[in-house]
């Protein structure tokens, strides 16, 4: 039986207090919802209420304890910096990058980029969406969202491959400069989101994936920038979810020690992750969208989810979720099977 609001359930989970059952959430999910309704992300934002009602209804149907708004992408920044984006693609694809070389960032004034970004039509529509969602759901459920994190945003300016080369080959100072620049943009966007009703900052850093870079580089460039975002916004929105794709088993201890509220992890060993986290942050995960949610039956997804909940129950501080964003071909009933397993996981 549910005795808590979704917000109470999440808040208690983040602070390690008791909950009525393990909460369930998805990481973003907006492109899944848009695709299911025959819309692109821009089509969703072009609806009269910027897609707010559709999103709230969809998250309700999925049974999630967190809603998501904010586009978790880089389009407004890329446009403000002179790059171009194909808004007709399902998730909006970057067509041309603003930078050819990492030192090109010196030619940009971050204040002007932020000011231009705010004039971008879909930036404002995103704020409209969030505001409308907040007025629909009131204060009983948390709304998460944000751009990519600073490191991933910096990679978007240059292209991931070139950015990777610069990490090894370039000047450390240049890498720091571009990541700091991106951090200012992320902070400015999050400030606007918070003003319009966001109460869970999400920092997805897919380019910091353990499949792409070594843990040293994470601690050298990614963590300080993500911490800067958290520290600058701590008084307005203290709860921060960090997501990193792929192999993150070697990063759990560092993320937990840094004091982020929750770490969203991909398909890694969750018991080891809980031990590494040591109760310092909540874990969010970790069913594989491709190998489990898109490939298995709803009964199998339910059983896997139930087993994970049982495994995580003794640790507390756990939110059942997919390990990454939802792929558009995942069946609704598979996501609902996860929600069912979480709702049935009465805690002692």
């Amino acid at each position: 039986m549910e005795t808590m609001t979704p917000k109470e359930r999440i808040k208690n989970t983040l602070s390690g207090k008791e909950v009525d059952h393990i909460p369930f959430a998805v990481l973003n999910g907006q492109s899944w919802i848009a695709a299911r309704n025959g819309l692109t992300m821009s089509g969703l934002l072009d609806l009269p209420d910027a897609g707010a009602q559709l999103l709230v209804d969809a998250y309700r149907e999925l049974g999630t304890d967190i809603l998501t708004s904010g586009c978790s992408a880089a389009w407004p920044m890329i446009s403000a910096m002179g790059g171009s984006v194909d808004m007709n693609a399902l998730s909006a694809e970057i067509v041309s990058r603003p930078l050819d070389t990492i030192d090109g960032i010196a030619g940009y004034d971050v204040t002007k980029v932020i000011s231009d970004m705010k004039k971008y039509h879909y930036y404002q529509r995103t704020l409209d969406q969030l505001r409308n969602m907040r007025s629909l759901v009131g204060d009983r459920i948390m709304i998460g969202g944000g751009f990519f994190g600073p490191f991933t945003m910096a990679a978007q300016m240059l292209g991931v491959e070139q950015f990777m080369i610069e990490l090894i080959d370039g000047e450390e100072e240049d890498v720091r400069r571009i990541v700091d620049f991106a951090a200012e943009i992320v902070i400015a966007y999050l400030e606007d989101l918070i003003e319009n009703g966001l109460d869970l900052i999400t920092i997805p850093e897919p380019v910091a994936s353990g499949d792409l870079i070594k843990p040293d580089l994470y601690e050298q460039f990614v963590l300080p920038a993500d911490l800067k975002v958290r520290e600058r916004l701590a008084d307005k929105c203290p709860d921060v979810l960090v997501h990193i794709c792929g192999r993150t088993d070697r990063l759990v201890a560092a993320v937990a020690a840094a004091g982020f509220s929750v770490f969203s992890v991909d398909s890694i060993d969750m018991v080891k992750a809980q031990n590494d986290a040591g109760g310092r942050c909540a874990l969010f995960g970790n069913l594989s969208p491709a190998l489990v949610l898109a490939a298995k039956s709803s009964d199998e997804v339910y059983e896997i989810s139930k087993a994970l909940c049982e495994q995580m129950k003794p640790f507390g501080r756990f939110i059942l979720a997919p390990g990454c964003d939802l792929a558009p071909n995942i069946p609704l009933e598979n996501i609902q099977a996860m929600a069912r397993a979480a709702h049935e996981s009465q805690t002692d």
């Binding site: 491959e161 990777m164 080369i165 090894i168 499949d211 792409l212 870079i213 070594k214 580089l217």
Partner: peptide, 9 residues
Amino acid sequence: EIFVPEVLV
């Protein structure tokens, strides 16, 4: 032992 940036260079 090494990651994508090292392979790229």
